[in-house]
Nucleic acid binder design. Structure first.
Lengths: 293, 293
DNA sequence: AGTTCTCTGGAATTTTTTTTCTATTTTTGA
DNA sequence: TCAAAAATAGAAAAAAAATTCCAGAGAACT
């Protein structure tokens, strides 16, 4: 009986199973086939589930695991579980990597390494955004934008960046757009004129800014719709939002990334422009530099 | 206590949790947050896993499930399990849909498809950013940021978003930071005090904004350094920049992305923070959601 | 401050699941 | 075909996990 590797990947395990397949007794062959075919659900299966699927007795499944050097079925299942939880949270992985890097284990990590790591992290962040993309919510959000008479956008602190982008982009449409920036503390005044048929786009993340909440309340009061972009359905504003889009951002140094939010905001605008058959021409190389004041 | 539906989707369940969230006691809130954030791993989690993650007693997790009408945790977990085993199959469909969309370029692509495509585009944009990463330039840029007495940041129109982010981030250091936003057309005045030992971060893309160029000229005149973030070495400001970082942004549907620039700005800040051994406190995973900041 | 109600956490209990044990069956090879 | 070895199935034991119970802490209300 060979010693089980402390860590072995699912693929390696499947390899070993395939290699040993011919020399297995009938029932264990059956188990082997099941596992090979259903590797993605082994992690949630119970011994009895697999046994049933294979028309085999539970103990056969345990024997199977043991014949590959595991102490029992649970031990083998662990391989599948950890594989899943790791791939389910690529961002977590990345965060640990960068934390280790920064954590000073390697004081010799160069500044450029940190930069590179960060970019990598953002990449896997976008992977997650793509994976958790919610088409229905997205379409609803675009609808709201299209129908709105005037669009108010609010976001404070971290979210201000995204808010200001959205306003910039929306100004390319014929919509009336207002950035609620609280200049001079005048949040209330800036959203004061919101009304029925208007839309408030509120962007807010964990410690959910008070100002944004106030704006949302005012919008609701004036019977305007709300498009909420936030990190969780449990966000304090979620309940009153007309439509909600969630974005998960990784963080480094407690500094949350912004890439996903920005990307989503841009996607919203692009989709809207697509619907409006707006053609945003690429700035031409020779176009004279304009000055607006 | 309402009867659990024979079949309820994960989304519906999350919705119900979100709706009830406010009325939950502290610990159950914590569990709710965990489940909402980790819905994809709930199916493999044990009661004790979740309890541990939430710093909560196992019985709280069971109570949570029961408060939503399930007989216990296992009953609730079933919802997540079945959802998973069902969606395991259609994954291939999605791949095909994407392929069709890309192949077809069809006019009847849905709004959501456009959004998805944009996200995909941003992903490959980041791939390119990673590939063309210039370690030496990056290190030099961080050096400039570290050495600067006061940091002025300027960017107009599209670039304003990135500029405002950078300022927001830099405010978490002890540096003096000024966002040159041209409020009231006062670009000149805002950079008027720049001097030797100071740094101007100029972010500019085609069609290079006149305002940014003016600021750069003033900075040079006052013997300040310049960190230029732009799209090409041939950018009009390139010649006079102390250090230059180039960022290529892809464009989807004729609209330039911003993800790369944002990502680079964030990377700069993170690297700088690393050098400063700045530790910005991480919001704690289980921290109850607060109504204020 | 006192009362009532809810929430919490530890331990006990129950249920479920895994593993071991062993008698029986099947296969293998002379 | 028979003996030896291997494989299997069921039951029983063990382990793990989930659930309940309850006493005490804490909040809310009077």
């Amino acid at each position: 009986m060979d010693t089980p590797m402390p860590t072995i990947s699912v693929d390696e395990l499947i390899q070993r199973i395939a290699a040993a397949y011919d020399s297995l007794p009938r029932q264990l062959k059956s188990v082997a086939t099941y596992i090979e075919q259903h590797r993605s659900s082994v992690m949630v299966d119970r011994v009895s589930d697999i046994a049933a699927h294979c028309n085999v007795h539970a103990s056969a499944v345990v024997r199977f695991a043991q014949s590959f050097g595991f102490s029992g079925f649970s031990d083998m299942q662990e391989v599948f579980r950890t594989a899943y939880t790791q791939q389910a949270a690529p961002t977590q992985n990345y965060q640990q990597r960068i934390r280790n890097l920064i954590g000073g284990k390697s004081k010799n990590a160069s500044v450029a390494d940190v930069g590179r790591e960060f970019i990598d992290g953002s990449r896997s962040g976008l992977d997650e955004l793509a994976a958790s993309f919610d088409p229905a919510g997205f379409e609803a959000a675009v609808e709201l934008l299209l129908k709105a008479k005037t669009i108010y956008v609010v976001g404070v602190r971290r979210s201000f960046t995204s808010a200001s982008y959205l306003v910039y982009a929306l100004q390319h449409t014929t919509k009336h757009v207002v950035l609620v920036n609280g200049l001079g503390g005048m949040y209330r005044d800036q959203v004061g004129n919101i009304g029925k048929g208007d839309l408030l786009v509120a962007i807010t993340f964990l410690p959910y800014g008070r100002e944004t909440q106030v704006c949302a309340r005012i919008a609701r009061h004036h019977h305007a719709s709300t498009l909420l972009i936030t990190d969780s359905q449990l966000s304090p504003l979620a309940r009153h939002a007309t439509t909600l889009l969630t974005v998960k951002e990784g963080s480094v140094f407690g500094f949350r990334s912004l890439t996903n939010t920005m990307c989503l905001c841009q996607a919203l605008f692009i989709a809207m422009a697509y619907k409006l058959e707006l053609s945003i021409e690429e700035p031409k190389p020779n176009r004279p530099i304009e000055e607006h004041d």
